[in-house]
Design a protein around this nucleic acid. Structure first.
Length: 497
RNA sequence: GGCGCAUUCGUCUAGUGGUUAGGACGCAAGGUUCUCAACCUUGAAACAGGGGUUCAAUUCCCCUAUGCGCUACCA
């Protein structure tokens, strides 16, 4: 049977880091073995699920280039089937009705409550002490017929243990005494997660379940359901978690935008770069290398290469320069300056468009110029945003002057206020406005003025680009062209700021 | 509290019963340069602790510590 895996997010927010990586690993695994990568939206939590989230998740997957096979399954569509299956288990005596009134839980600190409760009743807990567990069928039916509300619980055997071989964590075993009679169907008739997952995975013919390690212990419960259903469980592979810098849980609520896929898209990340980064969080090919194309990841990926220990996503909230993981930032810059120019062009276009700097000539009469310019300035950029920010002066006359640059490169050398317009006149005479010719003229000019060439160049840089940093000035002159170069050198705007 | 999982530089990680414990990011210093990146060179930086097993343990076993997860009529 061919391999079938699924990514099954619940639509309660945007696609976050951990989920994205789970999706990526599923995708890589499926592609590497020639299997199918399916998508299932687990929207059974009606209160928290939103269509907006679903859309956001799909966008995130699309951005990462993780295309799925077949139709998307919405778990809520299958609720009735799940209910029937629970009823069937009840019928077969593998589950029972629990008439215990539903406990109202305050949703805050719920985990804490559970732990506290467990602490109080330590030693005396018995997972099989439900008074309705051994009710006769007649009695149970009678109560149900009388309209008493009930949940359906799986009847877990008194003794024994479940076990499975996890592809990442190895052999796992759990004693039945550690597993409660889990609820399959709520008293309001809604199927619960563990039941729904098992039913859907069965229906979708999933062969390998690859998901976060937070489900490792849930797996035992699910195996119990598979057994009750008389089905063979799929193979399981659990992934280590991605933690916050304090090694705590990385959460949407606490960490916000830094864990959202859309943030990276909107902040100018190149999708293949971020995907590459994500792949290396919890997996390695066992070689000293970090740049991998999607094809290479597919080729190299294996579950054996997945780690068992959690990874820290190392960002610094307070530090603007290190707002997200340094390695992600570095990788993005690496991609921007080394990816094939033709792949970068559309991304640059996109960025300029959204900054309202795009002109159609860039694809037409000025195509060559545009591509050359992108190629020139990409060398020192970290994100696509830089094309419209630091790169603005190349595409627009309307750019800002950096105060520090003015101070450092212009005002510190007052002579430049007359020299640079003078240089402009000199450049006017240059017929062939290219690197070598410009260099000769400027060198000579600097010598005449008895100043270092750097003073001239940096002053010019600030007048031409508004910045203190940037590409080699000879390249900038050439790229901007004679007319703009001369105009900007003569402009007194910066001097008056 | 119970159960489970984990533990190599700050972070991502490689690795082996005998290694100068390797790489990457970040950081620092130097070189190069018209600036800043890039690039090159160099540097600081790790096997959680304690017991075993062994001629030898970072590697195998146990314990402790720490972290994380699960322990819901959430997913």
């Amino acid at each position: 049977m061919s391999i079938r895996v699924r990514f099954a997010p619940s639509p309660t927010g945007y696609l976050h880091l951990g989920a994205a990586r789970a999706a990526l690993f599923n995708y890589l695994y499926a592609r590497s073995v020639g299997g199918k990568f399916l998508l299932r939206i687990e929207d059974t939590d009606l209160e928290r699920s939103t269509e907006e989230s679903t859309r956001s998740i799909l966008e995130g997957l699309e951005w990462l280039g993780l295309d799925y096979d077949e139709e998307i399954i919405f778990q809520s569509d299958n609720a009735e089937k799940h209910r029937q299956i629970a009823l069937k288990l009840l019928e077969e005596g593998k589950a029972y009705r629990d008439f215990t009134p539903k406990e109202d839980r305050a949703n805050t600190n719920i985990k804490q409550n559970i732990a506290d409760k467990a602490r109080q009743q330590q030693g005396e807990k018995n997972m099989r002490d439900n008074p309705f567990r051994n009710l006769s069928k007649a009695e149970s039916d009678a109560k149900a017929d009388a309209g008493e509300p009930f949940a359906i619980r799986l009847k877990v055997a008194e003794t024994g243990k479940t076990s499975f071989e996890d592809a990442v964590y190895g052999f796992q075993e759990r004693d039945y005494s550690e597993i409660e009679d889990l609820v399959l169907l709520r008293s309001d008739g809604h199927p619960l997660y563990n039941l729904a997952v098992v039913c859907d995975d069965l229906e979708m013919q999933i062969t390998d379940v690859i998901r976060g390690q937070d489900h490792l212990t849930n797996t035992h419960k699910q195996i119990l359901i598979y057994e009750a259903l008389g089905k063979t469980p799929p193979r399981f592979a659990h992934l280590p978690l991605i933690l916050a810098p304090n090694k705590g849980k990385l959460s949407k609520r606490k960490h916000g935008a830094v864990v959202s896929m859309t943030t990276y898209r909107d902040k100018g990340f190149v999708a293949p770069a971020f995907r590459n980064f994500l792949a290396l969080l919890g997996w390695s090919a066992g070689e000293e290398r970090e740049i991998y194309s999607l094809e290479e990841l597919v080729e190299k990926f294996s579950l054996e290469g997945v780690h068992r220990n959690n990874a820290v996503f190392n960002f610094h909230e307070a530090d603007e320069r290190h707002w997200t993981d340094d390695k992600a930032l570095w990788m993005n810059a690496e991609y921007i300056r080394t990816m094939p120019l033709e792949s970068l062009i559309p991304l640059g276009k996109n960025e300029l468009k959204s900054a309202k700097l795009w002109r159609d000539e860039y694809e037409d009469d000025d195509k060559v110029w545009f591509e050359k310019t992108i190629d020139l300035i990409r060398q020192r950029f970290f994100t696509l945003k830089d094309f419209s920010a630091q790169g603005r002066a190349f595409f627009s006359e309307d750019f800002d002057f950096d105060e520090k640059a003015i101070e450092k490169n212009l005002k510190k050398f007052p002579d430049l206020q007359t020299w640079l317009p003078e240089l402009a006149n000199r450049l006017e005479t240059v017929e062939d406005f290219t690197h070598d010719n410009l260099e000769a003229v400027i060198k000579k000019f600097a010598e005449e003025k008895g100043t270092k060439i750097g003073v001239i160049m940096n002053g010019a840089r600030t007048l031409l680009t508004g910045l203190a940093v940037g590409p080699s000035m000879l390249a900038v002159f050439e790229t901007l062209g004679k007319e703009k170069t001369i105009r900007r050198l003569k402009s007194q705007v910066a001097w008056n700021l």
